[in-house]
Amino acid sequence: MTERIEKVANIARLELTAEEKKNFEKDLDNILDSFKKLEKIDTTNTEPTFQPVEVKNIMRKDKIETSLKQKDALKNAKDIEEGYFKGPKAI
């Protein structure tokens, strides 16, 4: 009965134990149930608000500015090779 959680956890790249799956399934049900309240409010002609304070598009001059040095950017990485960080096999 935890197929839904398994699907979501897979999308979210989250490994869960059997117990976590069971608990989160129950939590998700309860939380979604409490969200049903939103069905009561009519929003037919209402636009969504992505940003609470309106902002305009801002452009900057296409000019190279100083940024983090490669050495500093890699300081927190454990596996580095020739100025790159290493990750697991993707293909």
């Binding site: 990485a77 596996d79 697991p88």
Partner: peptide, 19 residues
């Protein structure tokens, strides 16, 4: 990867990230 908790890299990337 890159920062924070980093374990020994093994397996496919999806598996590593999820774990």
């Amino acid at each position: 990867m890159r920062y924070g908790a980093q374990d020994e890299i093994k397996g496919h990337f999806t598996e590593y990230f999820s774990t």
